[in-house]
Design a protein around this nucleic acid. Structure first.
Lengths: 114, 114
DNA sequence: TTCTTATATAAGTAAATAATAATATAGTTA
DNA sequence: TAACTATATTATTATTTACTTATATAAGAA
């Protein structure tokens, strides 16, 4: 398979963005399931603006996409991103985040209406 | 193939380190050929201490290794690093740095004694 | 030994980043 | 409509990072 190279600068930008354990965990979660902002807030025990800003950075690079569903904004991995393949490969080196979803379920904090 | 997962934190640290275009370019070069410090200084038009500090960070994480050869210190990719596979995969998303070696040759700055 | 070249380290500074607090916006419910 | 919940944005601050200058170390040459 021939991979069309991203530029060095572009790849560095993606790595810098994912070189943060909160954001890396977020994309890893999104690779498993969609997730809304308030769920991230609970999971990471971090202020809502902080979560929102992490998501914005990834949105700005086109890595994730947002979709409003009623009162919630649901985020998902943007499979059409030029960096999608790179990200999928990176995530092979990150353990499953399933336990975070399990924790949300257990606490009754999972938004299940979508 | 089963990949033994690095921890999320470890992977994030590697990505943060390589999320800098100078360091990403350095490892990409080292994946092609060994290189000494003074060559990096010429290539990146950056002060020697700055180059040295970039190398140190990568050395501290075990990504690269150093080997003194006479008056020079030659760096290479550490193929025994637990992150070697990850790094190889990342580098598929970075264009070849061959032209940098070509430029060194042309300028007569290539250290060829090793 | 002294001089030169190559590299590393330490200290200081400027820029970038991540977090918080405060505020604004948008949808939902009463 | 007002009140409430979810999310985004802005401004500020603290921390981190990358670079520079100055200095130290180490090897080779004179």
């Amino acid at each position: 398979m021939i991979i069309e190279h991203e530029s060095l600068k572009d790849t560095a930008n993606v790595l810098k963005l994912l070189g943060d354990k909160t954001r890396l965990s977020m994309v890893s979660m999104l690779a498993e399931q969609e997730c809304c902002v308030c769920e991230f807030v609970e999971i990471f025990e971090m202020s809502q603006p902080s979560i929102s800003q992490h998501l914005r950075k990834m949105r700005d690079l086109g890595i994730v996409r947002e979709q409003r569903k009623g009162q919630w904004v649901v985020y998902s991995l943007n499979t059409l991103s030029e960096y999608y393949l790179l990200i999928r490969e990176l995530l092979k080196h990150v353990p499953s985040q399933q336990e975070k979803f399990d924790w949300l379920e257990k606490k009754g904090l999972r938004i299940t209406c979508y």
